[in-house]
């Protein structure tokens, strides 16, 4: 598996397979729909707009409304920008290639996080025991999607903020919490600063 996000000059080049483009669009549409419904009992809404204040109901209700209005507008805007980015992409081997410039890698990173939070809230991932998730488990597919998007986040972080991914080099780390460490079945390729080096993708079978 080659990297999806690679340094390309001053930009970040994203190369998505067709199935990945579809995955992004569908997952994005589901989140946008949930946000637009805005059902306060929806676990996705609850997770993306957590209560800001503890121990002071008055300040809590005041701030909650302020925060939620701002955050909702920001999130919907970012989801729209994701669509615009995907639409801007150039066809590449049946998929799409997009050069992300300026703050666009950050935008992508944040949207990926929202998408993963939404999936996790939808399946109540906290209550799922990873050890019991086989391929027939209802959480198997959503968790695979979360892991895949998480791997993309790691790639973006390695490009945007190399010190952040150095945390993976720590030997003192205890067992990662579920969801923290997608099992990638790959050699170690995290942690090192990318220093503009591009992974070669010499026309492999992809």
């Amino acid at each position: 598996m080659t990297r999806t996000f690679r340094a390309h000059g001053d930009s970040v080049r994203a190369t998505f397979r067709p199935v990945e483009v579809e995955l992004l669009r569908v997952t994005r549409d589901e989140l946008a729909a949930a946000l637009e419904r805005g059902d306060p009992d929806d676990p996705v809404v609850q997770r993306l707009f957590p209560p800001p204040v503890l121990g002071d109901p008055e300040v809590e209700s005041e701030l909650r409304q302020l925060f939620q209005a701002d955050l909702l507008a920001d999130r919907l805007e970012q989801l729209d920008q994701l669509v615009a980015l995907l639409d801007r992409g150039e066809p590449h081997r049946g998929g799409v290639r997009i050069d992300l410039v300026e703050d666009e890698p950050l935008l992508f990173l944040g949207v990926l996080n929202d998408l993963r939070l939404a999936i996790g809230a939808r399946i109540d991932v906290e209550a799922v025991d990873r050890a019991e998730v086989d391929e027939d488990h209802p959480a198997a597919y959503p968790m695979a999607v979360m892991d895949h998007l998480g791997w993309w986040q790691e790639q973006l972080l390695a490009l945007i903020d190399p010190p952040a991914v150095r945390v993976h080099d720590l030997e003192e780390l205890d067992a990662p919490a579920s969801g923290d460490e997608p099992d990638r079945g790959e050699g170690p390729r995290r942690g090192g600063p990318p220093d503009g080096r591009t992974d070669d993708d010499p026309g492999g079978t992809g």
Partner: peptide, 18 residues
């Protein structure tokens, strides 16, 4: 206060704090 959750990546949380 920041609370633990099962979804946010450790590297991502470090990035956000930075």
């Amino acid at each position: 206060i920041v609370w633990d959750d099962p979804v946010n990546l450790m590297s991502y949380v470090v990035f956000v704090f930075r």
